[in-house]
Design a protein around this nucleic acid. Structure first.
Lengths: 114, 114
DNA sequence: TGACACTATGTCATATCTGACATATAGTGG
DNA sequence: CCACTATATGTCAGATATGACATAGTGTCA
């Protein structure tokens, strides 16, 4: 797979705004990445609201602190399955999940909007 | 991982309604499965609306017909990443994606609601 | 009947993800 | 300074997903 492109993303230093096509990503590819980043942010937010440390969450997930850190960092090695199932473990409802997803709205259509 | 439980699901013959706890699945686990099933259904629906065959879609994805079939069948071997990125390739907006996710609403809270 | 298009299911080599571990960095309180 | 907690980053063996292939089932048309 060419999900290795996401490795480049990280390597490239990440720049400022959204995942624009400063790499050769297709619309679908970048949309997927932004989606996962939105989930990452939601995850961190939710964990902190719960007053949990990464270590505590990791224990709940039967995973490790480093993986939780990677989840929250939007590391390319983290799958959407892992992100979503973690959010679900944190008690996120489908409705909130849907909200998180819409929040990662691709900047399609609005071009150089300020 | 114990995603092997999902293999059992398939083996168990699938029964009637939703993925209830007729297996030892936790809430989060079954919610994830229902979520993926909702995405599967959305995918098939969208592909058919586009008037595409599985073969055509596979070609567009640079994948194979068998994998598309598995995606639509909710096969446990299919990741959420694959489902979502396929939907995105089919031009699904984040909004519609969110809708699909809400449609897989877990039957949490409403117990024996007629 | 055969030929065809579409879909389903099983298997497998390889690619990718995962948890675990080591280690590093940042902040806080002694 | 050290000790402690929280988070970040790199690596790796083992687990899982992936595309490809073979094959089987289904319906349609002649």
């Amino acid at each position: 797979m060419k999900k290795s492109k996401r490795e480049k993303l990280k390597a490239a230093g990440w720049a400022i705004g959204s995942v624009q096509d400063f790499l050769g990503l297709s619309d679908a590819e970048s949309a997927l990445i932004e989606l996962k980043l939105a989930l990452s942010r939601t995850l961190r937010d939710r964990r902190q609201r719960c007053g949990m440390s990464q270590v505590e969450l990791a224990k709940r997930l039967r995973s490790s602190q480093s993986r939780v850190a990677k989840m929250e960092a939007g590391d390319p090695s983290v799958s959407m399955d892992l992100l979503v199932s973690t959010l679900l473990v944190l008690g996120t409802s489908s409705t909130d999940l849907a909200k998180a997803i819409r929040s990662g709205e691709g900047s399609k259509g609005r071009h150089a909007a300020a």
